[in-house]
Design a binder for these strands. Sequence first.
DNA 1: CTGTCGATGACAGTCACTGACATCAACAGT
DNA 2: ACTGTTGATGTCAGTGACTGTCATCGACAG
Lengths: 188, 188
Amino acid sequence: MGRWEPNAHGRLAAAALELYSERGYEQTTVAEIARRAGLTERTFFRHYADKREVLFATSGEFQELFVRAVAGALKSAAPIDALAVGLDAVSEMLTDQRDCVRTRQAVIMANPELQERDLIKLTSMSAALADTLRRHGVTEPAASLAAEAGVAVFKVGFERWVAGDEERELSRLMRESLDELKAVTAGR
Amino acid sequence: MGRWEPNAHGRLAAAALELYSERGYEQTTVAEIARRAGLTERTFFRHYADKREVLFATSGEFQELFVRAVAGALKSAAPIDALAVGLDAVSEMLTDQRDCVRTRQAVIMANPELQERDLIKLTSMSAALADTLRRHGVTEPAASLAAEAGVAVFKVGFERWVAGDEERELSRLMRESLDELKAVTAGR
DNA sequence: CTGTCGATGACAGTCACTGACATCAACAGT
DNA sequence: ACTGTTGATGTCAGTGACTGTCATCGACAG
C-alpha cells in the first residue's frame, strides 16, 4: 500500500466539481479544493496547471475518441460523412454520463473564464480533426473548414441536448444539426 | 484643458501592445504598462477589466460592423449570402489596418491566455449574428449554425490572410473559404 | 465663491500560481 | 537486514493580477 491515499488526481477533480457546483467557481479557492481532497494547495498545482484545468481532465480522451472515429471512417467516406461518424461516437460517450456532464456544463456556463477554457479545448479538437483530414488527403482550406463545421455542429447539438428535456437523444440532435448546416450553407 | 493628459484609454492600449510585442505578454506587468502610459496600475484596471482585455478594445466596434452589414443584407438575401456581405464588410475594415492587425495577431498567437480571450470574442460575435438571423425570421438551430459557419469562414480566411504574403486580398480569401465550406458540406 | 463631480493616486489586502527545499514510505540492490 | 534512490507530498517564501476604500484636486455649474 502506498504512503498516501490513492487517486489524488481524481479526488481533486471530484472535490473541485462539488465546490464549483455548490458555491460557484469564483467563490471557491484552490486551498479549499485541496483541503476537501485531503491535500495541500501546492499539490493541486502539481496535478493541474491551473484552477480551470481541473474541470477538463477528460478532454484529451474525448478528443482522441472523436479523432479516431473520424480517421476510421475517412477511408471510405467523404469528410463530412466521416465527421458525422465522429459525432455519433462522441454522442454515445456523453450519453453514458448525462448527469455528470450536465452538472459540469452548468458550472462552465456560469463563468466566463471557464467558457474560455472550454472554447480553447474545442479549438484544439478542431485542429486535431483538421490534421486528421489532411493526413487523409484533404487539402487546405477544406480540411480546416470541415473541421470547424464539425465542431460547430457539435456545439449546437450539445447545447440543445443539455438545455432540453431528456427525451431527445444526443445522436439524433447531432444529425439534425448537421442536416441544418447542410441546408443553410446550400442557401436555404 | 483637462487636469490630465487626454486619452488615457488609448495610451494604455498603445503601451500594452508595444510591451506585449517587444518582450511578450507574460513578461510584461500591468504596472509597466501603466508607467509607460504615465498612469498607475490601479488606473489601468479602471479602464480595462484585466490584462488581456486591453488588446480587445475594438472588438465591440468590429462586431457591430459585422452585424449591421448582415442585418442590412438579410432583407433581400438568404442567410448564407447575408453572412457573405458581412464578411466583405469586415474584410474592408481589416484591410485598412493590416500592419497593426498583424502585430496584434502575432502577440495573441504567442500566448494561450490571449487566444482564449480571442475565442470568446468570436463566440460573442457568433451569438450576435445568430440573434440577428433570428430577428429576421431564421429559426433555430439554423440561425446558430449559420452564425457558427460564418465565424468559421472568418477564422479560416483571416488566418490565411495573416499567415500569407501580402498579395492575396482578404475579401478574396473570405470568398474562397466560404466556397470551400459550401463544397465540403455538400459532400465533396 | 462654493459645492459637486469625475478621473486619478495611494495603499492595504486576497488569491492564483511558482520555485526551492525538506520529508519519508516504498522499493531495489547488495 | 542495511542502504541509497525515488517519487509524491508538505512547507514556506515569494511575485503579480486584481479589488475595495479613501484621499486628492482641477473643472465646472450655480
